[in-house]
Write a protein that binds this DNA or RNA. Structure first.
Lengths: 330, 330
DNA sequence: CTGAAAGCGCTTACAG
DNA sequence: CTGAAAGCGCTTACAG
């Protein structure tokens, strides 16, 4: 029913091979006038090549699977957005699936993605999930892990810059604002990226480890509780933006003054950090570079020499003056 | 190179037709013991059906294209997340593309999606873009617009509940907090959903129309400017969450007290509204229901009787007491 | 520079 | 209940 190559070939008075050569710019040359005829015929007929038929024959679908825990989380949303842009630039379409931090869902989703013949897989893996590299390898599909890979996974990992993020934040709180002690707000368990952040913090700071789930709710609740026990830190490094947002929300509601009572920096740095009240200082991850590296790695293209570094963006929450709001944060 | 049906059929001592019947549960019945043999063979071989080969033959790829302006925007992120979930439930995979509010990009992306044989298209169209329904119809692919369709488009639209959102917010500010006058923060131009919100506001409130782009930056800048001219509204209804976030950020920086100096409600209601400082009252859109309706509409399934309504969630910014932070907002 | 034909991995009438 | 075979729309050796 749809217009196919055969229709175009017939109308152009040529073969389907030539039509293919024209639409793919190769692999054989086509005479200029033949090309014109083909293009004209295709245009008149409203021909649209069927990428999936091509995929069946050529082995490349142009589809990349992107598995994220939850795209509503601003960190993953930002990462996902940059990844999608990088894939688009590479001529790939992004098949997005939310795995919801759930090992089973993640496995199911990987299966469906593989069945759909994706050319590659980019995944921020849930913790405790089966190694996604295994399913991918069995299917012969390249895979790269971003931000996090499960314990023991052999997947190539494009990590966030956890070290610089933590080190620069601790140094800033110490050097600029005189905090001798900087506590660290980690997750309930030590998964990959946060344990890297925690390790970096242990090396560079003195203080206590606080723990709560990676959500605004959990961090708000923890903050309220600490406040009620008068055990609030004077300076706190939050492992993630959502936790920092929760701390700020609770502080705002309780009349805790940030930064005077509690100085705060996050290790993610999504764009929203610039617009909290007070604005949230953050070691901003190089999302753009992470995305580009992941895509290059996946497609077997050369990586830029050195990974980009996280960049500390001081704002009101650490004790610095409020920067102008119109600067944005990309 | 990959394991195919032929391999499975051979090992099970049967035909590829039967293997297909087994994996698709039809359309012909298969004897129980034959099914066992096929399943065993497939398992031993590590067979994974090729969905795209099936698509070529059957005409259904299992892929749905989702075109959004920008998934970093919390409103579209939330919408996208619910849409992806609804599609997943329907057994469809989501091919996500950010069109970046750009007509050209949107057209290009639609083209690539159509070439990839998506079974359907869900789009929050950029304004001023070519009617996406035209390309879709030409390709014989069903399309539904969500939240917004360009002027003159014939695409079926699943809209947000703009009326209730505005009406309930205005009524709340008036009845509960005594505001006779409620200004409205619209976009720079009157596009679909916001013009619907604006129209509802005109019918239910008295006040001034303020305008700025749909971004935190723009709203923060506008707020600063109004403050410097002492022209700040006493009560404001923001068309979108991002604008409301910008207003709150500017107010926080300038020491403008929300809600005492300026009461604020937004018409979107993404989850982050619960965690701003002060928390943002919002007419919360029924994201879940919008997503379900869009997917049902797309797949030709019956729609629930009546669309769900937006629900006003009072919080600190309108003048109500701060609700507990641990309730969440789904 | 161009064409005839095989084949990618499935599904689906059709015949038995 | 099962099998042989055509065909979905492409790409790609191969031959000319």
């Amino acid at each position: 029913m749809a217009i196919t190559m055969v229709d175009v070939a017939r109308r152009a008075g040529t073969s389907t091979a030539v039509v293919s050569y024209v639409f793919n710019d190769g692999p054989r040359p086509v005479a200029a006038h033949t090309r014109q005829r083909v293009l004209a015929a295709a245009d008149e007929l409203g021909y649209r090549p069927n990428r999936m038929a091509a995929a069946l024959r050529s082995g490349s679908s142009g589809l990349i699977g992107l598995v994220l825990p939850d795209t509503v989380n601003p960190y993953f949303a930002t990462l996902g957005r940059h990844l999608e842009t990088a894939l688009d630039t590479a001529g790939k379409l992004t098949v997005l699936a939310n795995a919801g931090y759930d090992a089973q869902r993640q496995a199911a989703v990987l299966d469906r993605l593989l069945a759909s013949q994706v050319d590659g897989l980019i995944i921020v893996s849930a913790d405790g999930a089966a190694d996604p590299a295994i399913a991918a390898e069995q299917a012969g599909t390249p895979l790269v892990a971003v931000h996090h890979r499960p314990e023991g996974s052999t997947a190539p990992l494009v990590a966030a810059d956890n070290d610089t993020a933590v080190t620069s934040a601790v140094a800033h709180l110490h050097d600029q604002h005189g905090h001798e002690r900087v506590d660290f707000l980690a997750g309930l368990a030590d998964d990959g990226p946060v344990s890297a952040r925690l390790a970096a913090w242990r090396k560079s700071a003195t203080g206590e480890v606080l723990r709560c789930a990676y959500s605004r709710e959990a961090a708000a609740e923890l903050t309220s509780q600490l406040a009620s026990e008068s055990r609030l830190p004077r300076a706190l490094l939050a492992a993630t933006d959502v936790q920092a947002f929760g701390v700020l929300a609770a502080a705002g509601g309780l009349g805790i003054h940030v930064p005077d009572d509690l100085a705060l920096i996050s290790c993610d740095g999504s764009a929203e950090a610039a617009f909290t009240v007070p604005s949230l200082a953050a070691a901003q991850q190089p999302f753009d570079e992470i995305a580009r590296r992941a895509v290059n790695q996946l497609l077997g293209q050369p990586l830029p020499d050195a990974p980009a570094r996280a960049r500390l963006v001081p704002r009101r929450s650490c004790g610095c003056p409020q920067p102008p709001l119109i600067t944005g944060t990309g």
